[in-house]
């Protein structure tokens, strides 16, 4: 039987969840044996296979138009979508931005900050995505599995990945369930 395909991506997060994944240390070899690791931000495939993957992992919340595309694309191309880490599960620290208007936040960063020179302005180029209200991925696409934590403990991640790699849906409880 073919190994299950796993792809991941990161949106409005900090990469800490992917770093916690690397914190499974040498057990990454075991995961690589059990599953076919496809596109991730730390490998060179740029997007989940168009032909589809079994497990899609998303880190980070949705805070701009680009993230929205990533979330939709991942949902479309994977059978089981996993929200990885507090940003993906709840919105996380970046969601603090929702207390302010986008205008206020952009102005502070690109015009008002004390180190920005007199020619500060809010970037507008069409090549750039547009910031939006910060949302948890579940408010953009249906999510199948939630793995909270900021970041989730490497033990939790190893458990989740090895279960998924063996075709099982992991159950998080007791020691394995933490939001901090």
């Amino acid at each position: 039987m073919a190994k299950p395909k796993i792809a991941s991506d990161w949106m409005a997060g900090c990469a800490g969840c992917h770093m916690s994944l690397l914190d499974i240390d040498e057990r990454i070899i075991k995961i690589a044996e059990l599953a076919d690791i496809r596109a991730t931000p730390i490998t060179d495939l740029k997007e989940p296979d168009e032909s589809g993957v079994d497990v899609g992992i998303l880190e980070g919340g949705v805070n701009n138009t680009s993230n929205e595309e990533v979330a939709h694309r991942m949902r479309k191309r994977c059978k089981l979508l996993v929200a990885f880490g507090d940003c993906a599960v709840f919105g996380g620290v970046p969601a603090l931005r929702n207390f302010f208007t986008l205008e206020e936040s952009l102005r502070r960063a690109y015009v008002e900050t004390e180190s920005t020179d007199a020619e500060g302005k809010i970037p507008q180029d069409p090549e750039l995505c547009k910031p939006t209200r910060v949302r948890a991925p579940q408010d953009v696409v249906p999510v199948d599995l939630f793995v909270p934590g900021c970041p989730p403990d490497p033990e939790v991640i190893y458990y989740v990945l090895s279960e998924l790699a063996q075709g099982r849906k992991p159950v998080l409880e007791g020691d394995k369930l933490h939001w901090h």
């Binding site: 805070n63 302010f100 900050t113």
Partner: peptide, 17 residues
């Protein structure tokens, strides 16, 4: 060639308070 850094979170604003 341009390197577009393509996202923004706003810590400098939302840490206020």
């Amino acid at each position: 060639a341009y390197l577009h850094i393509n996202e923004f979170r706003g810590f400098e604003k939302f840490c206020e308070g």
